[in-house]
Amino acid sequence: MTTKDIVLIALFAALTAALGVIPQITLPMGVPITAQSMGVMLAGAFLGAKRGGLAIILFLALLAVGLPLLAGGRGGLGVFFGASGGFLIGFPVGAFMIGYLFDRYAGRPPLFPSILFMLLGGVGVVYLFGVPWLAVIAELSVWQALAASAAFLPGDVIKAVLASLILREVRKAIPNL
């Protein structure tokens, strides 16, 4: 791993943290969406499986040691025990998955496959961890937990589209990334 790799990993870990500063948008039904989980999608898409996953692990490590990096200034080990703890654990795996899909795709994927990859990793994989966790901690069935999480789905789809647009525009600005 070169110095450049380490700098990029640190940069995307910090980017995920900084995305928490962007004010959250509240959907009509009152569900908040934060820009933060876009950091997961962007890390995977820009850095690939290994570096993308490591960037998000680094973000979680700093969160765990007590830095208030989650949107709304939350942090510390408590956030991992909270209702969204499983989603946090799923973040690096999701970033890895997105990176893996982008790595496997020959050349640069157009917008539609790019959105699909972001959804598979950033929503599919992340929910795979988050929903059972929520079910265990709240003593609900997996289906009830899934229904409770479904309110966040429209926001997640919007984020996958935004992350794909960001990826395309940034690559236009810096082609040799």
Partner: peptide, 24 residues
């Protein structure tokens, strides 16, 4: 490479305020 991990941690801590100010 534990030195790499230490570097990554300290870089991230330095980048967070930089990025927050870039966003601002």
């Amino acid at each position: 490479r534990t030195r790499g991990i230490s570097l990554a941690i300290s870089l991230t801590l330095r980048f967070i305020p930089v990025l927050a100010s870039v966003v601002r």
